[in-house]
Write a protein that binds this DNA or RNA. Sequence first.
DNA 1: CTGTTAGCGCATTCAG
DNA 2: CTGAATGCGCTAACAG
Lengths: 332, 332
Amino acid sequence: MSDVARLAGVSVSTVSHVLNETRPVNPETVARVHDAIRTLGYSRNTIARALVRSSTNSLGLCISIITNPYFNELVHAIEGEAGRYGHTLLLGDTLDDAEHELRIVRALHERRVDGMIIAPSAGAAVHGLPHLTAAGVPTVLIDRFVPAGLDQVGVENTEATAALVGHLAEHGHRRIGMISGAVGLSTSAERVSGYRVGLLRAGLDQDPALEVCGTSQVEPARAAVERLLALPDPPTAIIIGNNLMTLGALRGLRDAGRHVPGDVALAAFDDFPWADLVSPPLTTIAQPVYQIGVEAVRLLLERITQPDRRPVTIRLEPQLVLRQSCGCPPPG
Amino acid sequence: MSDVARLAGVSVSTVSHVLNETRPVNPETVARVHDAIRTLGYSRNTIARALVRSSTNSLGLCISIITNPYFNELVHAIEGEAGRYGHTLLLGDTLDDAEHELRIVRALHERRVDGMIIAPSAGAAVHGLPHLTAAGVPTVLIDRFVPAGLDQVGVENTEATAALVGHLAEHGHRRIGMISGAVGLSTSAERVSGYRVGLLRAGLDQDPALEVCGTSQVEPARAAVERLLALPDPPTAIIIGNNLMTLGALRGLRDAGRHVPGDVALAAFDDFPWADLVSPPLTTIAQPVYQIGVEAVRLLLERITQPDRRPVTIRLEPQLVLRQSCGCPPPG
DNA sequence: CTGTTAGCGCATTCAG
DNA sequence: CTGAATGCGCTAACAG
């Protein structure tokens, strides 16, 4: 920067001011400075800037497995929205493991992100989150909720899942199974309770044997399907708690030679871009993923400027997408 | 940090040295410092550190549409590998647009990333890349190649695509169409030329009408299929240049009521995690995506430490995954 | 083994 | 409208 100043025949402070338009500068001088910048190929050092301003214009994003279509759409939305406000994203994969998550949180905090968006792991409440609140880092939670007095944004899970059960019941199913997500996640719990509510409303019996855990992952979900099918009185319909488990369930059913929806009907939480291309097309609950991302950065930027605003929880409405895996007839 | 020093009864330089283990310190003193750090909840300011060391321990990743399964697996691999070396990722979406890409490149360079991994857009050679080389930012290209004297890592496209054509020809197809990717990307060009090579080897005629551009996107690919089917002498098999276009092609075929592979056989570049679940299961060329990411950060870290090493181009071998969309019989 | 000190590149008072 | 000087928090000589 001093090079630029010298070449333009001004002081560094003037260069700083033209760069930030932070005080009136002679238009002619401005031009000279810009010329100097161009001929020198100068690029402002945001690191030094951050040091004095104590603001990096960057946000941390702690998330698990970007490979999950749900999360990567979220990342996409957040990156785009953050960019609109001149913020850059620092990315960290928590591996959905509390310890690893803490490492990521530390790393991003050391880099002095202005705020953090995090999809908390099951153990976040005892590791990562306390660290953040103790450090006073503006934080918003996405997808999963934690009673930690933080801003959070996600979807309404209970009613949505209950509606799924209701729909399956309308198709005449009496024994409906559920493959649930990893324990410790609010989404898993809410969807299971939605499942039970749905059963109750439809006047169906609760059978603990019909509730199996797929730990939010592909392979475990496949195994869960096998267990379900091996039951003396197996379900004729299954509800699946998240997108990854749907893959496993589909494979499990295929490998067992069961026809969907003929032998077993399926309805799943989380839509896929290709949900209409599998056979049969999947009936799902689609989350407004992009919207979640947008709201998350909005909330975060708000909190950065108003640290004392009361924490807010936003629940967006997911949407039931009827296709054929539930037993509905093809359109047209 | 001075707070820590005071509480521990030592100087800041000692604190710095215990933090970095950069010179022998009395074990007892070390303990006192660590205690102070803990009770104060001190978190080192990497920004200040970066300023003096002129190294941020962060890498920039410029990529388009994280939503693409290929790219998000790449991001996943790169994030993981970078993390293993203590580096954090700054993420930027180029939107595959040269101008936007330049903005992203600038933003990340201003944040003084130690190096940059970039999937260059079609116009990168005239905007983003010159900026990077002029600024002396260690850079490695992924997926697409550009003759810019930079390290780059991707797959062998030509032979792989030719093999796809060969396979389709073995199934008896004489008219094989191709839906190609966006112009200006090396991958698009290489795959088209592989297509032609394959035709030649199989002794089939080249028909320009059978080559339609799907611009690497879903909708355009669907339109491309329509155009192909409307031909007086439509193809009985189609090769698709990338994953997103496969979605479009599948929809186009379905909407036209064509059966795959009965009416039209399909073979596509890029595998999906769910390629076995669509009907029929997709025959694809699977890239060693994870490996590409790993090699990219290896190359980048190498270049950061050895700026004058000769640029290297790594071509990894993709793998032909035979399923049923090409006309192969189901296994078993 | 430990303390003192001089910048890293910039934003920002305070004087002109 | 402009320049000189201070310090952001830390590392790395340089002394002791």
